[in-house]
C-alpha cells in the first residue's frame, strides 16, 4: 500500500494580476486564489498511483486559514487527508523557513504512517523559486528528483521507483530508492474530473490544522521571519523601456514600411548579416 504525501501551496492567480499604476502595488481585488497549478498536477499523479497500488494520500500545506479550500480541492481530486500548518508565528517565512516547517511536519506524519513518495509541484507561480521541494528533500535526507514528467514504476516491495525527469539536454530515467521526493512538471498527470460524491465530500471536508506548537513543537528560531535568512529589501515595478518608432504598414504604405524596417535592422549593429547584408 502506497502512502504518498503531496506538498501544495495556495497562490494568487498570477495570470491575472494587475498593478495599481499610482502606487505600484498589486491590485488584489478580483485576483482569485487557486491551488498552484503544478501542485495540482502533482496531486493528480499521486492519485493515479494510489489507484494503481492502493493506499492513501496525505496533502500538506503551510498557509493562512483560507488555504483550507486548496486542501479541499485535493480531496476532491482523490486525496484522503489534508493537513494545514497554520500559525501567525509562521508568517514572513522565506523558502528556508518554509522547508523547515514542512519537513518537521512530514517527519511527524512519517512516524505514524511511513511515507513512500513525496510529491511537489516544480515551482509555485507566485514566487517561482522552486526551492521548497528541494529544501524539504534535503532536510529529510531523501533522494530528490526535480522536473519529473513521468513515473514509470513504483515498486513498494523492492523499495524503488523509476522516474523520468526533464533536463536541458534530454530526459533521463532515475532509479531511486524509497522514500524519495520529487517535484513535478504538468505532464506528470492530467487533473481528474471528480465524481460528484467526491466533490461533495471535499466540500464538507475539514482538514486538520496544525499550529507552531501542536503536534509539532517548532524551534521558534527557525520559523517565520526569524528563521528566514532572506528579506525583501525593496519592491518596485519593472522598468519601462523607451518606446521606439511606429510605422504604419497598410495598403500602399506597406512596401515602403517594410523597406524602411529592413534598412533599420541593417543599420543596427550586427543586424546586417541576419538579412543578407554585408558583414
Amino acid at each position: 500500500m502506497l502512502h504518498a504525501l503531496v506538498g501544495i501551496k495556495q497562490v494568487p492567480d498570477t495570470t491575472n494580476i494587475r498593478i495599481d499604476p499610482e502606487t505600484g502595488s498589486l491590485i488584489r481585488q478580483g485576483v482569485p486564489t487557486i491551488i498552484n497549478p503544478y501542485d495540482a498536477h502533482a496531486v493528480a499523479a499521486a492519485v493515479e498511483w494510489k489507484r494503481k497500488l492502493g493506499g492513501k494520500i496525505t496533502v500538506i500545506t503551510m498557509g493562512p486559514p483560507a488555504a483550507v479550500s486548496a486542501l479541499q480541492e485535493c480531496i476532491e481530486m482523490g486525496a484522503d487527508k489534508g493537513i494545514l500548518v497554520s500559525d501567525r508565528k509562521f508568517s514572513g517565512a522565506d523558502t528556508l523557513a518554509t522547508s523547515y516547517v514542512l519537513a518537521e511536519a512530514i517527519k511527524k506524519i512519517h512516524e505514524e504512517d511511513p511515507i513512500d513518495l513525496i510529491f511537489f509541484g516544480k515551482q509555485a507561480i507566485d514566487g517561482d523559486t522552486a526551492q521548497v521541494g528541494p529544501g524539504v528533500a534535503v532536510r529529510l535526507g531523501y533522494p530528490l528528483i526535480t522536473y519529473a514528467v513521468n513515473i514509470r514504476e513504483v515498486n513498494l516491495e523492492e523499495g524503488y521507483a523509476l522516474i523520468e525527469r526533464k533536463t536541458e539536454l534530454r530526459n533521463e530515467i532515475i532509479k531511486t530508492t524509497l522514500p524519495a521526493a520529487m517535484t513535478c512538471e504538468k505532464e506528470i498527470a492530467e487533473i481528474p474530473y471528480a465524481a460528484l460524491p467526491d466533490l461533495i465530500a471535499s466540500l464538507r471536508y475539514k482538514p486538520q490544522v496544525w499550529t507552531a506548537d501542536e503536534p509539532v513543537a517548532y524551534d521558534i528560531a527557525q520559523i517565520g521571519l526569524k528563521g528566514s535568512p532572506t528579506m525583501v529589501f525593496k519592491t518596485g515595478t519593472p522598468v519601462q523601456h523607451e518606446p521606439g518608432e511606429l510605422i504604419k504598414a497598410a495598403g500602399t504604405s506597406l512596401d515602403k514600411a517594410v523597406d524602411l524596417v529592413l534598412n533599420k535592422i541593417m543599420e543596427h549593429a550586427s543586424g546586417a548579416p541576419l538579412i543578407g547584408g554585408k558583414k
Binding site: Y193, A195, L196, L199, L203
Partner: peptide, 28 residues
C-alpha cells in the same frame, strides 16, 4: 449546501415527474 463546478444537464424523471437532476460529473 452549494455545489460548485458542476453542470446540470438533464432531469431525472419518475412516473413522468421530475425527481432530480443529472449532472455532468461521474455518479452525478
Amino acid at each position: 449546501f452549494i455545489i460548485p463546478k458542476t453542470l446540470v444537464e438533464e432531469f431525472i424523471y419518475q412516473d413522468g415527474k421530475v425527481v432530480g437532476v443529472k449532472t455532468d460529473r461521474p455518479q452525478g
